[in-house]
Design a protein around this nucleic acid. Sequence first.
RNA 1: AAAGCAAGCCGACUUGUCGCUGUUCCGGAUCUACGGGUCCGGGAGAGAGGAAAGUCCGGGCAGCACAGAGCACCGCACUUCCUAACAUGAAGGUCUCAUUCGUGGGAACGGAAAGUGCCACAGAAAAAAACUACCUGAUGCUUCGGCGGAUGGAAAAGGUGAAAAUGUGAGGUAAGAGCUCACAGUUCUGUUAGGCAACAAAUGGAAAGGGUAACCCCUGCGGGCUGAAAAACCAAAUACACCCCAAUGAAACGGCUCGUUUCGCUUGAGGGGAGGGUAGGUUGCUGGAUCCUUACAGUGAUGUAAGGACUAGAUAAAUGACAGGAUAGAACAGAACCCGGCUUACUGGCUUGCUUUUUUU
Length: 123
Amino acid sequence: MNIQKNTFGKEEKLCSEKDIDSLYKTGQSFLNFPLVFYHLAAEGTGASKVLISVSKKKFKNAVDRNLVKRRLREAYRLHKSILSKVYHLGFVYIGNEILPYEQLEKAMVDGLQKIETAQDKSE
RNA sequence: AAAGCAAGCCGACUUGUCGCUGUUCCGGAUCUACGGGUCCGGGAGAGAGGAAAGUCCGGGCAGCACAGAGCACCGCACUUCCUAACAUGAAGGUCUCAUUCGUGGGAACGGAAAGUGCCACAGAAAAAAACUACCUGAUGCUUCGGCGGAUGGAAAAGGUGAAAAUGUGAGGUAAGAGCUCACAGUUCUGUUAGGCAACAAAUGGAAAGGGUAACCCCUGCGGGCUGAAAAACCAAAUACACCCCAAUGAAACGGCUCGUUUCGCUUGAGGGGAGGGUAGGUUGCUGGAUCCUUACAGUGAUGUAAGGACUAGAUAAAUGACAGGAUAGAACAGAACCCGGCUUACUGGCUUGCUUUUUUU
């Protein structure tokens, strides 16, 4: 059990168009199948903000997109304590099939750890 | 009992842990114009569908447009009814296809006697039909027996075709013909009894030169355009244009003056005001042609009355993850302003009706 609560409220979601633009243009990215991670160190305090994207091209039905997004959100919620700083993050799902939660969780953990080490190096 | 067909209904359970979005209550902090608002913590309770989908029709609602009328364009087209409205709704009629003869499906169901066009192939001819064969038999020729076939008649026969001028029989005729008659069929129409009506039965009269309106067209009825990314409100920084104040000017170089350069003096440095409304926020937004139950009316769609209920309101978009139990890793699938209908997708199950087979009485 973490001391910190594993919440995921509205203030942890990346909504502003400006922030999304800057994340895609100036942020760094890498692939950890089935996810592409975008990350950018954010200023200020508070919680990291997260953007989750599942393409309409890959999943035609809204139900399928929602399922994948929910699983990704759950995986992030349970493992976000890996991050030590404040970031703007973007997760883009590029798989062609709906993967079980176990695989998504593993990919999420690896990805978050990579972000952490990459940011340490750049500083 | 099993199988098949049709119609209708249900559309998924439960325990624990963590988590998400509204509502409401309690406590604390903070702001206040004392109405309340914001934030934090905790409790309670609520939280996707029968199709939420496709966006195919119709309406509410909103904005814009709008004297009136006509044309064009688009849609609809048997009858009556229901409805806020529509029909692709209900009930019925007609035609048509299938049939186990019970019934079920389909209809692109106003007009071809307003006009135009078209009717492949075949056929003489596809709309005012003469090819063969039939009747008539001029002039001419003749061995006086006839030969020949102009002209005209004729839709009865042949063959072609999806379709050839209503069918059969009789009379009639030069040969024929609805030319006449009998029976039958088609269209229009009068009367009588049925039905609100479409229609349909009997009976009388009239007419008949085909199909195609899913070629154009004609007739009748309806339709303003755009959709919640509509619309209303609040509104920071930067930039933009406007108004006001403002001049023997301003800025750069320079320690200062002169000077030089640039800008301004109709085009405005600087200050102020008031705009529009981009990021974002609030309203729209969920109490409604609402849902449930019962009774009554109706064949039915549906309507009326009474009682009860409040039942998502998100904004990158809330229902998930893990572990366990029950046949079990359960189909199609996720609200986005709201409602009525239609269409399409589908797991498992239930109910009703009909048919067939078997068993029992």
